Amino acid sequence: MTILENDQIRVSVRSKGAELTSIFHKASGIEHLWQADPSVWAWHAPNLFPVVGGCLNNQLLVDGKTYPIERHGFARQSTFETTESTATHAVFSLRSSEATRVHFPYEFEFQIIYELSGPTLTVTYRVLNEDEKTVFFSVGAHPAFAVPFGPDEVYEDYYIEFEKAEPLQTHMLSAAGYFTGETRPVATDENRLPLTKHLFDQDALVFKRLRSHRAAIRSRNHDHAVTVDYPAFPYLGIWAKPGAPFVCIEPWLGCADSEGNQKPIERKEAIQHVEPGRVFNASFTITVS
């Protein structure tokens, strides 16, 4: 376990999946990350790579060949190497191998970088192309934040406050986890999305190309908040297991497939790419205030 710490927050990261396991706010004594109760949802904050969401037939189509790939990719199940570590900074690395080539036929290094500054944790995804061809991929975050923050509150005391007031339309998912092509409006109070136990009865809320690039979890009872800023991520998922005491705010560069015919990886919706010898970077932040 790698621990990063300053005078305001302490975070822990495990080597499996380079996954955050704790975001502890010292002044309030509050643990803000869901603690992965296996009877409810056994993850804290999985990192999604090289796909986000599900692929049709659980396959990637690359250069005319199909490769088996699980929902959200293999990074979250992989062991990362810690290549740098200081009191407030750590770099975790996953390199291509025989195991990854079975699912993703590219030569790459996937780095996840964590950096503390005051009350803010910056998470950077870096993809290094070590191949002789363009590498196509998706990448995203899935942090689960514990709600309510304290024992004297209930889930319904909380809401998600978006940066801007705008109409929210969620893109509907089938039972298999693929986009159906349908949308439905999501009721808000100006720029506030109230949290309720039934908000996620029809799976995740998926928003595409919002004008807002910030979302905060807030209570009606106090000013303490957790804010996620995601300027480089045009897709956003919000999810919780129905009735569970957490909510995920998920910045994505990629998304699930739509129902219909399988598309080659370079034509998948929201696909990213990096040229040979080049490096891709995208960052988001989590701030406790």
Results as ranks from 00 to 15, higher is better:
Glu5Met: 01
Ile9Trp: 10
Arg10Ser: 05
Val11Asn: 06
Ser15Ala: 15
Lys16Trp: 02
Leu20Glu: 13
His25Val: 03
His25Cys: 03
Glu31Met: 09
His32Arg: 13
Leu33Asn: 14
Gln35Tyr: 02
Ala36Phe: 01
Ala36Thr: 04
Asp37Glu: 14
Ser39His: 11
Val40His: 01
Ala42Phe: 00
Trp43Asn: 06
Leu48Trp: 06
Pro50Thr: 07
Val52Lys: 06
Leu61Lys: 07
Val62Thr: 13
Lys65Asp: 14
Lys65Ile: 05
Tyr67Ser: 03
Phe74Glu: 08
Phe74Asn: 09
Gln77Asn: 12
Thr79Phe: 09
Thr86Ala: 02
Ala87Arg: 11
Thr88Pro: 00
His89Trp: 13
Val91Phe: 09
Ser93Phe: 10
Ser93Thr: 15
Arg95Met: 06
Ser97Met: 08
Ala99Val: 14
Phe104Leu: 14
Gln111Pro: 08
Tyr114Lys: 15
Tyr114Ile: 13
Leu116Arg: 06
Thr120Val: 08
Thr122Ser: 03
Tyr125Thr: 06
Tyr125Pro: 02
Arg126Met: 13
Thr134Val: 15
Val135Asn: 01
Val139Ala: 12
Ala144Thr: 02
Ala146Leu: 04
Val147Gly: 01
Pro148Phe: 15
Asp152Trp: 07
Glu153Thr: 11
Tyr155Ile: 15
Tyr158Lys: 04
Tyr159Cys: 04
Ala165Pro: 02
Glu166Ile: 05
Leu168Thr: 10
His171Ile: 08
Ala175Tyr: 02
Gly177Ile: 00
Tyr178Thr: 06
Phe179Tyr: 15
Phe179Lys: 05
Pro185Leu: 14
Asp189Asn: 15
Asn191Glu: 08
Pro194Tyr: 07
Lys197His: 12
Leu199Asp: 05
Gln202Cys: 02
Leu210Trp: 08
Leu210Ile: 12
His213Met: 02
Arg214Pro: 00
Ile217Ala: 02
Asp223Leu: 12
Val226Asn: 01
Pro231Gln: 07
Ala232Cys: 00
Leu236Gly: 09
Ala240Trp: 05
Pro245Tyr: 13
Phe246Arg: 04
Val247Tyr: 10
Cys248Ala: 15
Pro251His: 13
Pro251Met: 14
Trp252Lys: 03
Leu253Cys: 02
Leu253Pro: 00
Gly254Lys: 04
Gly254Gln: 04
Glu259Leu: 15
Glu259Pro: 04
Glu266Lys: 03
Glu269Cys: 07
Ala270Thr: 00
Ile271Gln: 03
Val274Ile: 15
Arg278Asn: 06
Phe280Arg: 03
Ala282Thr: 05
Ser283His: 05
Thr287Ala: 11
